[in-house]
Design a protein around this nucleic acid. Structure first.
Length: 524
RNA sequence: GCCGCGUUCGUCUAAGGGCUAGGACACCACCCUUUCACGGUGGUGAUACGGGUUCGAAUCCCGUACGCGGUACCA
């Protein structure tokens, strides 16, 4: 008997290449919303496919090195719960994961391309490049490229003789290696999000592959490292789409075409007003965060606020980001990370850019706070209380308070305003809300309330409420007339959970104390 | 300029040739609530434009407009 075909299929499954994705930021500053979303999509895909998620640091531009930026990235990923399987910090089978530490590795590939005639040495100095651009600049072509049209007019190994080239290299003349873009080819590939995309090579410039300082550019490094690290799927921002033909040609020229990852160019996150990519500036201007966490430019006091410090829950932050450009096809908007892993699919990623809406972001956070149980919220709330000098020593009581006020909190710091009066006697009261309707009868009534409360041995919300209302009825006062004053006395303002819940928590002594305090002020 | 990618309520989006184009945020109104919230009900509000193809187009094709991205020895 032959094996059933379906069994054959299954047995072939494990042979399929293991999914490996990477997030490859350059450590130049805070981690932007869009960056975190790229991490997220990478992570979701990797987890769903049982693959690996790699963090690779693209620090090939030494002039843009910013101390602390790399640590900041680790911290962000940790906060978001999107930890890489391999990274400079965690190590892994393909170390090093920092491109600056892989510097020596890239040159051989660039030299190989030169030998193959797919790349060439170029000796042009920066000022020569600039004057070239000046010289060829016209109204129709405001930014001339270093391409096949002008290649032969520059100082490079295409235009110079073999001997001249060799001599200059021997003399140590600084040079770069550029890719030699073909003059008349069409590069076509299938993007997982956009479908078939094609470019004509005559319109793409001879990009620098290896810089004069020996460092690769992004173009070379991304191809070499994705190959060496066995990356199977490459997710990146849409801004990379125009240079994708260079990368695809590189995969081909290096002889790795069969190993090339599948590409997915993610839509951009746009500023809420007007158009354009969302930038740190927009956040400052409009008053919302753009970075995941606070970021201070080293050596300055220039602080950019982050979502974490502004009081977002990581669950909400991730959820919100996931929905910016993706949905599962149903009306569901609230997803846990596990649900996202289960349901994420690249073909449901939207093609167009999405304007960032801070109001919606806050809504996600509010929903997550409402859903979270008090225990989950406790560490965050405690730390915020610490910052505001609120001492919550009794854990059980703190949890009660959190449960009572969380539906009124959109951002974590809202817990301060919403629950300070549980722990501290109000310093100010909204007396204007009581005064207009205040009279002798009410003054007397609250005196009676105090005597009543003093006699109570039971102290819970239900009994207090019943007792208070009975007393009011006995004194011929409508509960509605005295409930608001009572609230102001206990809370200080017109907000907060049920008054008797509050009285139950702050206790007999403090309740009476607060009533007294306000009564005195009302008398004076 | 050139190249590429986009375009459904103000915003995020659903609808992959067939209903009054659905949901969410925000906004407004009402209900609940003797505070504030939560919750509930309802409302305003969109297929950029022009041509095709088709019995029928938000959906497929072409063009235009608009937006964005790229056009660095930055990523």
């Amino acid at each position: 008997m032959q094996t059933l075909p379906v069994v054959n299929c299954l047995s072939l499954r494990p042979m399929a290449k293991k999914v490996r994705v990477r997030f490859a930021p350059s450590p130049t500053g805070g981690l932007h919303l869009g960056g975190v979303r790229t991490v997220l999509y990478n992570y979701l895909f990797a987890r769903q496919q049982g693959g690996d998620f790699v963090l690779r640091i693209e620090d090939t531009d030494q002039s843009r090195y910013v101390p602390g930026a790399e640590e900041y990235i680790y911290e962000c990923l940790k906060w978001c719960g999107l930890q890489p399987d391999e990274s400079p910090l965690a190590g892994g089978p393909f170390a090093p994961y920092r491109q600056s530490e892989r510097k020596e590795l890239y040159r051989q590939y660039a030299e190989f391309l030169v030998q193959e005639g797919k790349a060439y040495y170029a000796f042009d100095r920066p000022d020569e490049l600039e004057s070239m651009r000046e010289r060829f600049k016209t109204a129709e072509n405001p930014s001339p490229q270093y391409d096949h049209n002008i290649r032969m007019q520059m100082r490079n190994s295409c235009a110079l003789t073999f001997e001249e080239t060799q001599r200059m290299i021997a003399d140590g003349v600084p040079h770069v290696i550029r890719i030699r873009m073909p003059e008349n080819e069409t590069v076509t590939f299938t993007d997982m999000i956009r479908g078939e995309v094609s470019f004509h090579t005559s319109l793409v410039d001879d990009k620098v592959l290896l810089k004069a300082d020996g460092m690769p550019t992004y173009h070379l490094a991304v191809v070499v490292d994705d190959y060496l690290m066995k990356i199977t799927h490459a997710f990146r921002g849409e801004e990379w789409l125009p240079s994708s033909p260079v990368h695809i040609l590189l995969w081909k020229y290096l002889g790795w075409e069969k190993e090339m990852p599948q590409w997915a160019h993610l839509p951009l996150i746009l500023k809420p007003d007007g158009n354009g990519k969302l930038s740190k500036r927009d956040g400052d201007r409009l008053g919302f965060p753009v970075f995941a966490m606070n970021w201070t430019v080293p050596g300055t006091s220039e602080l950019t606020k982050g979502f974490r410090e502004m009081g977002f829950l990581p669950e909400a932050f991730i959820n919100m980001l996931a929905m910016l450009g993706w949905n599962d096809g149903t009306d569901q908007e609230l997803f846990t990370l596990d649900e996202l892993i289960q349901k994420f699919s690249i073909d449901r990623v939207h093609k167009g850019g999405a304007k960032f809406d801070f109001e919606k972001a806050k809504w996600f956070n509010h929903e997550w706070i409402k859903r979270a149980d008090a225990g989950r919220l406790k560490p965050e709330v405690k730390s915020i209380f610490d910052q505001h000098g609120i001492a919550a020593t009794d854990d059980a009581q703190l949890e009660k308070v959190i449960a009572l006020v969380k539906e009124r909190c959109t951002l974590l710091p809202d817990f301060v305003e919403q629950s300070r009066f549980f722990f501290q006697t109000p310093q100010q009261w909204d007396l204007d809300a009581i005064k207009p309707k205040w009279n002798e009868a009410k003054q007397t009534f609250f005196g009676d309330v105090i005597s009543y409360l003093q006699q109570q041995s039971y102290w819970n919300a239900t009994d207090l409420e019943n007792g208070f209302k009975e007393l009011a009825a006995a004194k011929q006062i409508k509960p509605g007339e005295v409930l608001l004053p009572l609230r102001i006395m206990l809370v200080g303002g017109k907000f907060g959970p049920g008054v008797f819940e509050i009285a139950a928590i702050i206790g007999k002594e403090e309740t009476i104390n607060r009533i007294n305090l306000v009564l005195q002020q009302l008398r004076g």
